[in-house]
Amino acid sequence: MTTTVPAPRTTGERGAPLADVGRDEASLRRFLHGLPGVDQVGLERRSATLATRSIKADSKMRAIDMAVSMIDLTTLEGADTPGKVRSLCAQAMRPDPEYPDVPAVAAVCVYPDLAGVAVERLAGSSVGVAAVATAFPSGRSSLAVKLADTALAVDAGASEIDMVIDRGAFLTGNYGLVYDEIVAVKQACGPAHLKVILETGELAGYDDVRRASWLALLAGADVIKTSTGKISPAATLPVVQLMLLAVRDWHRLTGEHRGVKAAGGIRSAKDAIKHLVAVNEVAGPDWLTPALFRFGASSLLNDLLRQRRTQLEGHYVGASYIGSA
């Protein structure tokens, strides 16, 4: 009797202690279904308690600036034009020209065909260019098309790629396919950072969110991201909490820091600060950096700027007083 040893599906040195989990479908399934369950009531109760934290005064100013620096300022519309993208880039680099001490956002997030426009406009700044790829937002296409989509963005100079997982494959239990796609896209990214969108609003509950998080981490995701922003619910505090637990556990097991991106549905400074509290208390203060936590948002920035001015000027500032891309 001969034994065939499957080719290892490792991602090199990264995640070394868990490197052989992805070697085949059965191993992946055993691992993902062996993860501890998630209790909905307990998870949501913890989120509700985190949301009661009262962030005032200096800590609020600091939170607002942190949140600004963690934003992937996003426009993902069929109607996007080079002009729209350029105007977004201008705000990304200098969110509030009246207050030059406001930090720049982390990145601008666009469709792949407009990545080049953003790269050009942001040249020389600290702001990254993130491009959604892999047949965003549905992910319904062939691997070849997804890789070509990724290459289009990378070739245009995108420094970050936001891919979507194949939710259909995930929901039918075809974990190997999802894993292989992430590995292939990661390879196509080259030096660009890979964020893997789980689209948690399409998954079957919190146990699935945990499994999808681990699947993406095992396959080499630099960041796990909640949503495309095209499906509701998008980022919720319990879902983000759960993903923060996944990167915390990944760090405990491997010593590596991986990131989380909360995308979609976070529009107010108040909501953003609740998420920062969760980052601080669930994953830990190490994750309070744009390298490890991001907000995917379009309207959030303006509310943060209004709240920031309110803190400084002592009264609320109308939306029309803030330049908006």
Binding site: P36, G37, V38, D39, V41, G42, L43, R45, R46, L245
Partner: peptide
């Protein structure tokens, strides 16, 4: 058990 929630 759901470990994280058990800890909570």
């Amino acid at each position: 058990a759901a470990l994280d929630q058990a800890v909570e």
